[in-house]
Amino acid sequence: MELWFTEKHTPYVQFSIKIEKQLYAAKSEFQRIDILESREFGRILTLDGYLMLTEKDEFIYHEMITHVPMAVMPHARKVLIIGGGDGGTAREILRYKTVESIDLVDIDKMVADACRKYIPQTAASLDDPRVKCHFEDGLKYIRHHENEYDLIIVDSTDPFGPGEGLFTKEFYGNCYKALKDDGIMVNQHESPFYPADSYAMQRAHKRIFESFPISRIYQAHIPTYPSGHWLFGFASKKYHPILDANWQKWKSLDIKTRYYNPKLHAGAFALPTYVEDIIREVE
């Protein structure tokens, strides 16, 4: 029997992975959750049929969304993760011993519970004593916090479905308010390639650019995401993403990474011309 997981990257392009078996399927209040086992990518988490992570390539995404801001702010103590119920982002942040607490706010507890059971590679972090999980709407949570966090990481799903509110101006504005005076916000910034993703990416950048004095974009290559070319946003009140990076300090922490390194950090902010053009249009 041939069992395949297929995601439509556009109405005319699809991406498929051969599946060995389905480990979990459920419908939460917010979305459909599936966990699949594959030969090539190990275990796979999908939400409403969209691939969120695979055991094989999740390190790229999770290293890039965390170590870039942490190299700029290795002294961060209080971190907020919005989304990220799979635990991958929290796992990377936990590698910094000076981080005192991580608040993780995800709307869907069922995702976290399913990952705890089937994808401990990322979700084991959720049970660390420094991580406090809040299962509620991120937009609501952030509204009630002010001048509190050093770093906010927006590890959201796509800007349609339950993650929609995390791509709005009111959300970014509230993040600004919840950050301390030198705070940094990093977000999952979609892909520049296919038109629909690219449009969402441009709108998100426009809103962040309006809300933060420093707003830059960096990239990574993630094999299982649409087009493989993925972006992250770096928004900050004070620190420049490259000029203020504290490489020495970061190297001294001796954190073993597989994708991230200081040279790549600086290079990741150098974007293809067509991507620069999309971004400039809204600045």
Partner: peptide
């Protein structure tokens, strides 16, 4: 979730 957006926008 749309109501959260309205409330958050008013706060902003």
């Amino acid at each position: 979730r749309d109501m959260e957006r309205l409330v958050s926008a008013l706060s902003e």
